[in-house]
């Protein structure tokens, strides 16, 4: 099977996955105890007529499956209804904050890969030396420290003591500003540290395993320089097992962003989600949870394609 056919086949599989995640999201929000109507009306007594009107507006008078179908079909066009709290369209509330979270997430993932892979390779190449041990200690710390604590520590050191960053994000300038991008480094590093630690050690063990394989000796016996042997032959095979776990890190980065956005008062969708959960703003909650689900499915799709690209045996 060619890579192209593999990609198409794999893309088709995402359709039932997307349906499943939408069902789950919808079901989850509706399983939250309490009648949404109480949150819409802030627990005021209503005459039955007004209540019916409000129920009709939010579709709450329909049977659940109709509510679901309505929700999915409009969600597919980007219409998630209006927020119960602000009465603004959900989509515009999300679009306002999504760029912040996206930039932070991409930065976190980028920082993760850019540090985890080279350091993992170095740790593997100098395995069982001081360098390797240092990387092991860093990895243990990185995995053990909770995000909120690391975030606070970074703020304390870099913003408060060293004064390199402001304590609060310079939000007024928008996400595409130098100040904001620089500030975003702090939450991005906070989110990425755990994943970096994990991926670095995984890269190391995968690489150590590959370095022992016969094809490495074949490559050396061809007279290729050591750099080529490692960077061309060993690295590619080592990445195969790292790619899948790297994709799962996308999910961790997304879920990590919720806490980190609060620590850094960062204006992204994670903070929006937490704010609105308290208010049962279910149209917003549904939209954000669905978005997160879709992002994870997408990341897995990309991982599988990469996996197949790296390992020709997978396509069969």
């Amino acid at each position: 099977m060619s890579l192209q056919r593999f990609v198409i086949k794999r893309a088709l599989i995402t359709i039932p996955l997307l349906l499943g995640i939408s069902l789950l999201t919808f079901g989850m929000v509706h399983a939250i105890p309490g009648d949404p109507i109480d949150f819409i009306t802030l627990f005021t007594e209503l005459d039955p007529e007004t209540e019916m009107e409000i129920r009709a507006e939010y579709g709450l008078d329909q049977p659940v499956y109709i509510q679901y179908i309505d929700w999915v079909t409009s969600a597919a066009t980007g219409d998630f209804g209006r927020s119960i709290i602000t009465r603004d369209p959900v989509i515009s509330e999300i679009m306002e904050r999504l760029p912040y979270t996206l930039v932070m997430g991409i930065m976190a993932f980028g920082v993760t890969l850019a540090t985890a892979i080279p350091t993992g390779v170095i740790a593997a190449y100098y395995r069982n030396t001081k360098i390797d041990q240092a990387s092991r200690v860093f990895a243990l710390l990185g995995i053990a420290i909770p995000n909120f604590l690391l975030g606070l520590l970074l703020l304390l050191v870099f913003a408060s003591w060293l004064d390199l960053f402001p304590i609060l994000p310079p939000t007024s300038q928008g996400i595409v500003s130098y100040d904001m991008l620089v500030y975003t480094l702090l939450p991005a590093i906070t989110i990425g540290t755990g994943s970096t630690a994990l991926l670095m050690r995984l890269m190391r063990s995968s690489m150590v395993e590959e370095l022992d394989k016969d094809y490495v000796r074949t490559a050396r016996a061809k007279g290729l320089p050591e750099r080529t042997v490692v960077q061309k032959h060993v690295l590619r095979n080592s990445l195969i097992s790292v790619v899948t776990v790297a994709a799962i890190q996308v999910a961790f980065i997304i879920s990590g962003s919720v806490v980190v956005e609060i620590v850094f008062s960062y204006p992204g969708i994670g903070r929006l989600l937490v704010n609105r959960v308290g208010n049962r703003d279910f149209p917003v909650i549904q939209a954000i949870v669905l978005l997160i689900g879709v992002a994870v499915i997408l990341a897995n799709f990309v991982a599988d394609v990469l996996y197949a690209y790296l390992d020709p045996r997978i396509r069969y």
């Binding site: 094809y215 000796r217 074949t218 016996a221 032959h233 590619r236 095979n237 390992d311």
Partner: peptide, 16 residues
């Protein structure tokens, strides 16, 4: 000087 190895399956890099 060139070398031929015992187990061809493992002597070849699976991904090239």
């Amino acid at each position: 000087i060139a070398m031929i190895f015992q187990d061809a399956e493992t002597a070849l890099n699976p991904s090239y």
